[in-house]
Amino acid sequence: MNLNQTITLSPEVISQEVSGETVLLDLQSENYFGLDEVGTRIWQLIQESGQLQTVYDTLLQEYDVTPAQLQQDLEKLLQAIQAAGLVSLEAASNETAAND
Rank of each mutant, 00 (worst) to 15 (best):
L3D: 00
N4P: 09
Q5M: 07
Q5C: 08
Q5S: 14
T6N: 11
I7Q: 03
I7R: 07
L9K: 03
L9C: 11
S10N: 07
V13I: 12
S15K: 00
Q16P: 02
E17M: 12
V18H: 11
V18K: 11
S19R: 05
G20E: 12
G20R: 08
L24D: 01
L24H: 02
L25C: 13
D26M: 08
Q28C: 06
Q28E: 13
S29R: 10
E30N: 10
E30G: 03
N31A: 14
N31Q: 14
F33T: 04
L35C: 09
D36H: 04
E37Y: 08
T40E: 06
I42L: 08
W43S: 08
Q44I: 01
Q44D: 03
L45A: 02
Q47I: 15
Q47K: 15
Q47M: 12
Q47L: 15
E48N: 13
Q51E: 15
Y56M: 04
D57N: 02
L59G: 00
E62V: 05
Y63A: 11
Y63S: 13
Y63G: 10
D64C: 04
D64G: 05
A68L: 10
A68K: 01
A68T: 06
Q69S: 08
Q69Y: 01
Q72W: 07
D73S: 12
K76V: 14
K76C: 13
L77H: 02
L78E: 00
L78H: 02
Q79I: 03
A80D: 07
I81N: 07
A84H: 06
L86K: 03
V87Q: 11
V87C: 08
S88E: 10
A91D: 12
S93M: 13
N94Q: 12
N94S: 14
E95K: 05
A97E: 14
N99T: 13
N99K: 06
D100A: 10
D100V: 09
